[in-house]
Design a protein around this nucleic acid. Structure first.
Length: 716
DNA sequence: AGCACGCCGACT
DNA sequence: GTCGGCGTGCTC
């Protein structure tokens, strides 16, 4: 007879909690079901992760489960182990990962509402109250609020002691309230009844690869692969694998980068898989997402396509997990909770004994290295396309674009061709500098210079969106001469419009193009030839559905090298590569890279599409610096308002770590690259070790001893 | 996370 | 004394 339930809660806590199971539920509780439990005066949805006959710690007075919410478990044992391992790996909460697999309406939490009592109402009229009390009580006259709301409303750090005193005086009372579960009726998703596209003409090479992959996977076993090849070939292989997996009565999890989940791609999936596919994306309305979730839950969907969060789909019988564009940053989630979906896919595939496919034309060096070393690299040997690549250094003082670039552009425009131009910066200029006193306007919340946006006539913080009207005179010395430093997309657009007044020029940056619809619209017009020159930032580089063009201009890709990240070279190589993929391969295409660092290896290798050369040189540096894949690296970011306390605590933490384990290298603590963000100071440390276990052991001890608000990012 | 507790200086 | 504000620690 089971008596105790171990429950994981959707809070940023890495422990689980135990509850008594009341008699009436005993025969009905199951591992993997949701329960409603009391927790510090609140009611929370929790998840049963195990059932015990005996209790471990007799000291604690256990509470009873209030309600069992599921007759049938939501989570299969496999899924529980997977999320458990993932939370161990990333030092984060198990419950938060479980929560990530459910629609928000499945994870209700009570809120403590603060009500005005009758006494409070009369006190407000008759008695003289303090300013704070009066303000709160009169606000509560309208309707009850939560403490968090009041706190924010009055700009306080805490109102808890204030509220408890007021409740003691009887002015207010608290009431637990659970948001009503909207009784919406879900319409079944209108699934396309299109004729499914049949695979045809799969090359012998791909057929052989498919066979090799399945050979390793039968009998069913975890088997990872890195597919190194062009997008078209990769996709052909994926669909072939999916087909075979479907034949085995198994299902597929297909992860794609956030940004590449365009209408175009969605249509392709629907065409090929029809109603067997559930497609998720982040901008999907709540209702639609829940409908897709139900499709997975009911077993109708056999393939789930989505961004990193789709890793948590409640798909059973997983036979194949694909992580396409393995190099993409969007697989990494920085906060609450922090995890890398690439690693997550590995852990899940291993748990499910599934085939795991990482795919890329320009894989991360970490991934490529592992695949080579452990023998799971599948090289599709891309055939070389003909193209002309120019690396240009020359730059006049007056213009952003070089004369050579403009000549090429003129030539193509005269032939009625289209061009794409990449620049890695939003706005008009990244910096304003007073010529007189050198003052640089900075964000009040962040340690960041404000970017000048000419179209809005504002200076804007690219981290928190704080903005000011463009200053006419220097706010420090009242000088009228303020210089613009550097170039952004708006400046490029302005210059090209000046030189090519007849050309139809449009720019494409995340702050200008609002939402999916407008993006699709611009891409649509470009595809129809109604735009001659499309200028864009990263957003453009990632669009896979643009028609191939005959001129690709890449302006100052080295700004990507300026990132304070050991992966900066990789990012530069990859972005140039993405842009070059937009080139038509009929031999007339031309790429022009304009840079101040023409001999940097990442630019050179990208220009000649030479992954091996990039890999070799980057690995040399990684080895030299003891970066991944030669070490395991963990970033610990401490955040807090008080920099003094932050500094002291982080030093304490660092000392503890150093004493704890000699095998780990501790860098810092030091101010983070952005030392203040949204008004919060940030101090960071980097931990490196040969094996992750060393880091695990050291952190396990230190995290218990020094309590800090912060984020731990495991980089690899 | 969110809530209680307890300590501190400021103020009727 | 009491009020408001803040840091600290715990939650089965």
């Amino acid at each position: 007879m089971t008596l105790y339930a171990e429950v994981a809660l959707p809070l940023p806590l890495s422990q689980t909690f135990f509850y008594l199971i009341p008699e009436r539920w005993q025969s009905r509780v199951q591992i993997g079901a949701r329960v409603l439990v009391p927790f510090r005066g609140r009611a929370l949805t929790g998840f049963i992760v195990s059932l015990k006959k005996r209790r471990a710690n007799k000291e604690i007075r256990l509470k009873e489960i209030e309600e069992v919410l599921d007759e049938k478990p939501l989570f299969a044992p496999n899924f529980l182990s997977f999320t458990r391992r993932l939370s161990d790996y990333y030092y984060t909460s198990w419950g938060e990962f479980l929560q990530a697999s459910l629609p928000p309406t499945y994870v209700l939490k009570s809120k403590r509402m603060i009500h005005l009592s009758a006494e409070g109402g009369s006190a407000l009229k008759k008695e003289k109250l303090s300013k704070e009390e009066k303000a709160i009580l009169s606000l509560l006259q309208k309707k009850p609020y939560t403490a968090t709301f009041l706190q924010r409303r009055f700009g306080k750090k805490s109102v808890s002691s204030l509220l408890s005193r007021m409740s003691r005086k009887g002015y207010v009372h608290f009431q637990k309230e659970i948001q009503k579960r909207g009784r919406r009726r879900l319409r079944p998703v209108s699934s396309l009844q299109k004729q499914l596209e049949i695979d045809f003409g799969l090359s012998r090479k791909l057929r052989n690869f498919t066979e090799a992959i399945f050979q390793k996977a039968s009998p069913k076993a975890f088997s990872p692969w890195l597919v190194f090849g062009s997008e078209d070939e990769r996709k052909a292989l994926y669909f072939n694998l999916i087909k075979k997996v479907l034949e085995r009565e198994e299902k597929t999890l297909y992860l794609v980068p956030e940004i590449s989940l365009t209408q175009h791609l969605i249509e392709r999936f629907e065409k090929r898989l029809g109603k067997e596919a559930a497609i998720l994306h982040s901008q999907m309305p709540e209702r639609k997402r829940e409908a897709e979730w139900l499709k997975v839950r009911s077993g109708e969907a056999k393939v789930v396509v989505g961004p990193r969060s789709a890793l948590f789909s409640l798909l059973d019988k997983v036979g194949l997990i694909i992580v396409d564009e393995e190099q993409d940053d969007s697989y990494f989630q920085r906060e609450n909770p922090s995890y890398d979906a690439r690693r997550g896919a590995w852990i899940r595939a291993k748990q499910e004994k599934a085939i795991l496919i990482y795919g890329s034309a320009r894989p991360t060096v970490e991934g490529f290295y592992q695949a080579k070393k452990r023998g799971y690299l599948l090289n599709l040997e891309q055939k070389e396309q003909k193209r002309k690549v120019n690396i240009v250094r020359e730059r006049s003082r007056r213009d952003i674009t070089s004369q050579q670039f403009r000549e090429s552009l003129r030539e193509k425009l005269n032939e009625g061709e289209q061009a794409l131009v990449f620049i890695n910066r939003r706005g008009y200029a990244p910096l304003l500098v007073c010529s007189n006193c050198r003052h640089i306007p900075k964000c009040v919340n962040c340690d960041i210079a404000l970017n000048y946006h000419k179209k809005k006539e504002k200076i804007v913080c690219h981290y928190c969106n704080y903005s000011l009207p463009k200053p006419e005179v220097c706010p420090e010395c009242r000088s009228r001469i303020i210089r613009l430093m550097g170039y952004g997309i708006e400046a490029v657009e302005e210059e090209l419009k000046k030189y090519f007044p007849q050309a139809r020029i449009t720019s494409f940056a995340s702050d200008e193009v609002k939402g999916r619809k407008e993006q699709e619209w611009i891409v649509h017009r470009f595809s129809e030839g109604k735009i001659d020159i499309l200028i864009g930032t990263q957003l453009l580089a990632h669009r896979a559905d643009l028609p191939p063009v005959s001129l690709v201009g890449i302006l100052y890709p080295e700004t990507l090298l300026g990132l304070a990240d050991y992966r900066a070279s990789q990012k530069t190589f990859q972005t140039i590569g993405l842009m070059m993929d937009h080139l038509q391969d009929n031999g007339h295409g031309e790429v022009l890279i304009q840079t101040e660092l023409p001999s940097h290896f990442s630019i050179q290798a990208a220009a000649s599409k030479d992954y091996d050369s990039f890999f070799k040189q980057e690995m040399k540096l990684r080895r030299l610096m003891n970066y991944p894949p030669f070490s395991h690296m963990i970033g610990v970011l401490f955040q807090g308002e008080n920099l003094r306390i932050l500094a002291q605590k982080s030093r304490e933490f660092s000392a503890l770590l150093k004493s704890e384990a000699g095998e780990i290298e501790v860098l810092g603590p030091s101010l983070a690259g952005v030392k203040r963000l949204k008004g919060i100071s940030r101090v960071q440390m980097i931990l490196k070790a040969r094996r992750k276990k060393y880091l695990d052991d050291a952190l396990q001890v230190s995290l218990k001893k020094v309590r800090l608000r912060g984020t731990i990012s495991v980089f690899n």
